[in-house]
Design a protein around this nucleic acid. Structure first.
Lengths: 123, 123
DNA sequence: CAGAATCCGTTACGATACTG
DNA sequence: CAGTATCGTAACGGATTCTG
């Protein structure tokens, strides 16, 4: 086996990949697309806080990494549809594990934060 | 069950938490501390690319969230030791799932990138 | 409708110097 | 040894305007 265990630094390609698909909006976008293909403005409405610019960038990144597919609908006027890819679907499980963990330990974490913040002040 | 499925936006506290513990250096740091408690400069050597400033910030964040513990060793001169907490240990599993996924699909992803980049040029 | 282009402020980060 | 303080840069993201 190569390493992964005592791996010095999470391996740069991994780190870079995570940066691209765990960023601010990617999870929300993929979450939406996992339910159904969506038009651009449909996505905007589903994720009200995202700006058009960020959404575009997010979709491009996800498309480049093969997690999302951009379909040009040859209608009149031309429309665009985004859909999750098979690869994208395989990413759901790891993410759910992550969110489940977050959910389960959020109270514990919140308490750690409170304690930490109190101590910082208390000094 | 509440939602998570048609959840609009990954829930802000979750998003914020992920930002704090999946950031650039946190995984490498926790990876190291999972093997043994470490001194500050020991960590720096283990993760050569991290600057002192970023390492300090990362450790503080992880400490605040209860994933890492800062132990003041009352020796002469005073030393500091960082260790993973029980909570921190529970985070290992989700991360491994994530990295395993990344490992398994990296070739596929790399090919998607190549294709995408080629098409961008080809036009 | 689905963006591209521009401007602009905040934040992240690295490099460097200094401290108890 | 384990930081803090300061500075400069660069990337990120939001707001706004424009376009086929």
């Amino acid at each position: 086996m190569p390493d992964t265990a005592h791996d010095f630094v999470i391996a740069l390609p991994h780190r870079e990949l995570l940066d691209q698909i765990l960023d601010k909006w990617s999870l929300s976008v993929m979450n939406e697309l996992c339910e159904r293909p969506c038009r651009f403005n449909e996505l905007r409405r589903s994720i009200p806080a995202v700006t058009q610019k960020s959404l575009t960038a997010t979709l491009r990144r996800l498309e480049r990494n093969g997690l999302v597919e951009r379909r040009l609908l040859t209608s009149r006027p031309v429309a665009v549809e985004y859909a999750i890819t098979p690869l994208g679907k395989t990413f759901r499980a790891p993410v759910e594990v992550l969110l489940t963990w977050a959910d389960a330990h959020m109270p514990e974490i919140q308490q750690a934060r409170d304690t930490f913040d109190d101590e910082s002040l208390g000094l």
